[in-house]
Simulated scan of single mutants.
Amino acid sequence: MQTITVNDAVGQALAEEMRRDPRVLTFGEGVATNRRDLLAEFGPQRVRNTPLAEGIIAGAAAGAAAMGLRPVIDLLFAPFLTLSMDAIMNSAGKLRYLSGGQFEFPMVVLARTGAGWTVGGQHNHNLEAMFVHSPGLKVVMPHSTADYKGLLKSAIRDPNPVLFFMDMTVGYTPGPVPEGEHVVPLGQAAVLRAGRDVTLVSYSKSVTTCLAAADQLARRGIDAEVIDLRTLKPLDEATILRSVRKTGRLLVVHEAAAPCGVGAEVAAIVSEKAFAALKAPIRRITGPDAPAPSSWMLEQAALPQADGIARAALELVGAETVPA
């Protein structure tokens, strides 16, 4: 086992996949500057900086994927994805279907999201649900350093376009990563803490907050199960339903705003498929439906916090019946 940062885990995944498959290349905003080791090993034909032109970058990637390459592009901050929607959603996301399966579009789009760097609304916006809603795309949002590496390797190998969201605050956070080949399948959630009283479902760095809340609940005698979704599309419904049928209570947590968010989808799935198991109403704790502030204190106030998660879980445990 090695201890490396998230940025290094991503770099390892890229290097290993580029060695494994000569069709893999990476380009985007600052890629060659930030990944000088990749540039030195693979050269400017496979590692390139680009202008700040997100639509052109994504369009070039969709074209490269259609011609048999496997591009990994970096568009930096998630709000800039709005400038590349046509190439990602209408081309890469749909053309495999429109071709009757004759073509593949294996491209990975890296984008940074999440509060904590006080970069303001222009650079911080959690857009993951928008891409979950788009046919033909897969969406990944890791929590652990090991998953950043393992899920990126799976995303690069996948024959479909994958949105890979990286929380901007954890890039330099170290964590354990297995030595050698380490691949994590897309579409499999992880149960990070087993419990019997309430299920906490989250993804990205909010998982850390849920684990802290579970520690608080344990001191109150409440046994919380914590699930890291890891992949938002395809979503691991089986793991969620199995947990809720055991605990009878569900609390979904994410930084993104509530309307039409991933939490709403998780709540709908449980309501449709495990309603009889519920002992209390489903709860969501999310970020506000507002642009991100550029003040660190205001950012923290807008984020789901462990104390609030623990309070909501205690309320769920105290509500033994679902209102009619």
Rank of each mutant, 00 (worst) to 15 (best):
L98I: 13
P135Q: 09
H125S: 11
N90L: 14
G93M: 09
L98D: 09
L127C: 06
G101Q: 01
L76C: 09
T113L: 03
M166K: 05
A78N: 02
G101M: 06
T113D: 06
K138V: 04
A146D: 02
Y148A: 13
M89Q: 14
G150W: 06
N90S: 15
K149N: 13
T118I: 02
L81P: 09
V132M: 14
H143C: 12
F77I: 02
E104F: 01
A146E: 08
M168A: 10
N126Q: 12
M141A: 15
V140F: 07
G114C: 02
S84W: 10
V72D: 00
G114P: 06
M130L: 15
S99M: 06
V162M: 03
P135R: 10
M130E: 09
D147H: 15
Y97R: 14
I88G: 03
V170L: 07
H133G: 04
S99F: 08
M166T: 13
P142V: 08
V109K: 10
E104W: 01
V119P: 00
H123I: 00
G93Y: 03
G101I: 04
M85I: 15
V109S: 01
L151F: 03
D74I: 03
T169L: 06
D147T: 02
L83V: 07
F105H: 13
L137T: 04
T145A: 12
G136F: 09
Q102I: 11
T82C: 15
L95Q: 14
F103I: 14
G136P: 06
A111Q: 10
H133E: 11
N126H: 10
N160D: 15
S91N: 15
R70F: 00
N124M: 03
W117L: 13
I156W: 06
F80H: 08
M107T: 11
P71R: 01
S154W: 07
I88Q: 08
D74E: 15
R96H: 13
S91F: 14
T145K: 01
L152I: 05
G150P: 09
I88K: 03
L127H: 08
E128W: 06
V162D: 04
V72T: 01
R70L: 00
V109T: 10
D74F: 07
V72S: 00
T145V: 15
F164Q: 01
V109N: 09
G120R: 00
V72R: 02
P161W: 06
L127F: 09
R96Q: 14
Y97H: 15
A129R: 07
I73M: 02
E104Q: 12
